[in-house]
Design a protein around this nucleic acid. Structure first.
Lengths: 206, 206
DNA sequence: ATGGTTTACGGAGCAGTGTTCCGCTTTCTT
DNA sequence: AAGAAAGCGGAACACTGCTCCGTAAACCAT
C-alpha cells in the first residue's frame, strides 16, 4: 500500500485503448439516435448493428441498459438539475418556480420515448437508472420544495422523492394510442403537463 | 338471409363443448392465482401449465393477454363502477365522493401486481384492456366529476378520461424496490393513495 | 521494425419470452 | 355406432437479453 498510486485514477492509470474510446462514442451516438426513433427499449442488437459493433462490445462498455441510458441522457439531466436554483432565484414565488421546474422535467421525460416508463422498472437492472435519476434530481427538487414550504406556500408533509416519483409516473402515462382528434370537452386527450400542474396545485395550502 | 337465425345468438346458436367451457373456467382460476403471485405478466406457459392445458388452448379462449386480464378482473371493475353513484348519494360533498372513489380505484390497482403498468401499454395487444377499462370506468368517474363541477367544487376544464389516466399512472408508480424503512421526513416512500389525494385536491377551485 | 503482452472485439450460442399451426383427440349429432 | 365438427396439445418459429471465448487489434519495450 505504498502511496497507492492507483488511487490517482485521474492521472490515467492507463488510458483506454484508442478503438475502445472510439467505440464508446459511436455507441452513444447510435443509442441516442435509436432512442429517438424506437424508444429507450430498442433491441440491443439494433444498437450494436447501427454502431457497427458486436453485442459484446455494448455489454463491455455498458453492463446494463441503464448504464447506457444514463450515459445518453446525462447532460440533459444535469441541465434540469441546474435549472432548479436558477428558477428559484428568478421567480417571485417559490411555488411558481417549482411549477415551472416540474414542467421542465415533464417535458424532458415525455420527449424521450418510454424513458419515464423505463424508470418504473418493469425490468431487472433498472436500479442504476433509478438511482441516478433519484440521486441527481431529488436534491434539485428538494431545494424548491423546501423553499416553498419555508414561504408557507405548500403543505410540509410531502417529500421531494415522492413528488418526483409522482410526476415521473404522470409523465409515463403520456405517449399511448391516443388519436382522438375529436378533443371533445370531457374526453380531452391525456396531457402529462396539465396533470402535473394540477398535482402541484394540490400541494398548496388551502 | 331467411330470418338470419344466427343473429339470435342469445338463443345459443350452438353451446360450446363441455370440455371447452370447463377449460375456460380452469384457465381463469389458474390465471387469477398466478396474477396474485407473479403479477399480470406471468408467462403464458406458466398459466397453461398451472391449468393443465396447452398454450394453444389459452390463445383459443383468450386471443390476447388483455382478454384474459379483463376476464379475470371483470367483477372487480364492475364493483368499482357501481360504487360511484353509491358514494355520490351517500356523501355530502361531490368532491368528497370523488376523492373516496379515486381511493377505491387506486386501491384496486395497486393490489394487483403490475395491472396499472399493463394499462400503460408497453405491449401490443393492450388495446383491449385499455378499451375495457376506459369504457367502463370513464362513465363512472364522469358522473362524479360532473357532479363536483356542477356544485362548483372543482374546475370545469378537466375531463374524466384524463383524470382516470392520471390516477392510473400514479398507481403504476407504486410497487418498486422501496425498502427505505427509514421513513425520514423528506424522503418518505412513495404512496400512490397520498399522491392521488393531492391530485384530487389540486382540482379544487382556489 | 519486431516481438510479446495486454486489451478489446465479434458473434455464435444459450435461455426465456410470445405466438402460430396442424395432426390428433374429444365431444356432439343423428 | 359412425361420421362430422369442435377443441386440444405442444412442437416449432421468431425475437428478445445476455454470456463466453477464440481471435484481432493496439500498445509497449527493445
Amino acid at each position: 500500500m505504498t502511496a497507492t498510486p492507483t488511487d490517482e485514477r485521474a492521472q490515467q492509470a492507463r488510458p483506454k485503448r484508442a478503438d475502445a474510446r472510439r467505440n464508446e462514442q459511436t455507441l452513444l451516438d447510435a443509442a441516442a439516435a435509436l432512442f429517438v426513433t424506437s424508444g429507450v427499449n430498442a433491441p440491443v442488437r439494433d444498437i450494436a448493428a447501427r454502431a457497427g459493433v458486436g453485442v459484446g462490445t455494448i455489454y463491455r462498455h455498458f453492463p446494463t441498459r441503464s448504464d447506457l441510458i444514463v450515459a445518453v441522457f446525462r447532460h440533459q439531466v444535469e441541465a434540469c438539475v441546474a435549472a432548479a436554483p436558477r428558477l428559484l432565484a428568478a421567480r417571485e414565488s417559490a411555488h411558481q418556480a417549482l411549477a415551472e421546474w416540474v414542467d421542465l422535467f415533464v417535458d424532458f421525460l415525455v420527449t424521450k420515448h418510454g424513458l419515464a416508463s423505463a424508470l418504473h422498472g418493469d425490468n431487472d437492472g433498472v436500479d442504476t437508472l433509478h438511482t441516478y435519476f433519484v440521486g441527481h434530481l431529488v436534491p434539485a427538487c428538494g431545494l424548491l420544495v423546501a423553499a416553498a414550504i419555508a414561504t408557507g406556500e405548500i403543505r410540509g408533509d410531502i417529500g421531494p422523492y415522492e413528488l418526483l416519483r409522482a410526476v415521473g409516473s404522470l409523465a409515463a402515462g403520456e405517449g399511448q394510442a391516443d388519436d382522438t382528434a375529436a378533443e371533445s370537452p370531457a374526453e380531452r386527450a391525456y396531457d402529462a403537463r396539465r396533470m402535473a400542474a394540477v398535482l402541484i396545485a394540490g400541494l398548496r395550502l388551502s
